[in-house]
Nucleic acid binder design. Sequence first.
DNA 1: ATTTATTCAGACAAGTCTGTATGTATTATT
DNA 2: AATAATACATACAGACTTGTCTGAATAAAT
Lengths: 177, 177
Amino acid sequence: MAHQKQEVRDRILLTADRLFQEQGFNETGINQIINEAKIAKASLYYHFKSKEELCVAYLEQRNRIWNEAFYEFLKNKTNKVLAAFDFLIDRNLADDFKGCSFLNMLSETSPEKKQIYDLIQSHKSGLLLFFEYELNDKELAYVIYSLFENAIIESKLYRSQDPIYRLKKYAQKLLER
Amino acid sequence: MAHQKQEVRDRILLTADRLFQEQGFNETGINQIINEAKIAKASLYYHFKSKEELCVAYLEQRNRIWNEAFYEFLKNKTNKVLAAFDFLIDRNLADDFKGCSFLNMLSETSPEKKQIYDLIQSHKSGLLLFFEYELNDKELAYVIYSLFENAIIESKLYRSQDPIYRLKKYAQKLLER
DNA sequence: ATTTATTCAGACAAGTCTGTATGTATTATT
DNA sequence: AATAATACATACAGACTTGTCTGAATAAAT
């Protein structure tokens, strides 16, 4: 096998990752991806047999990247639950308030695409699991998780970090009981 | 002015409303709308000068329809805050778990479309205002509002009413303090 | 050295998209 | 009855979409 194989495949995925986040899935065409990744169209279809398959690979990669960054960020934090909210602030600065890639995809796809729904579900389940693990209280975890999710959405909608600060504070109060 | 004017305009909006919800905005073409509404393309562009303008009218109408149904549902309920969660269950049954039209649009548009962002913001602000009015406690209202929002999203993602029941129960506990 | 895997460039198919243009027919207002 | 508003059908422009195909070039594996 050519040693460039991974390189080209990765370049496709990295470019798709960036464009899907910046513009959304349906607003990003195959042609734009191959132009910006500087690869031939035939090379894309050599690695992915359809745009949907590329979408699946994208979500898998996104889940990996997000989790790595998330747990890396929380590494040296004492209160990881509250620190999770700070992570959102960093992300908004990095991606200009594009919001959650998985929720964005959820709005751009349909339940018939089972593989895609599954990946979104498993990303969100993993996140909820984190809160459950940290809090040892499933009910409280689900509430904090909801605040966390809404913090992402509201900060995207208003293009402001304020909702995050505010919801973090409310989360803190709930933890203090 | 022809008395049919409103009729045709309404038929366009009603059809767009149904299709945008069923399939999403970007997945719905102008041609499908005019076919299903049984009107001429020129008639659509007579009433709306672009698809984006149709989008704006759609969101305005959706906000009206949603609020009417919402407050009608809550009319005879004693605990309106908790009843709001029951409203979500009804809506999921009616629209087959399509989720929130405004959040769906949020994922399909960009902040440059200011008018659209504004309409989404004002819909969500109105909803938050409802909770604030009912609860007389801005902090609690924002928390319940977050549970409500996440109830919509999770029930869509898992195509299940369970998240709503669960989050309603947690909301109830928060109210009881 | 030969086979196999990978990448390239780009034409092409077959369809979609939004929006415009044309001309006519119907309806309402004055 | 004359004028203006509305609605019609439909062709068309021009750009876009995903995906296929061809044929050659390069690189790796055997």
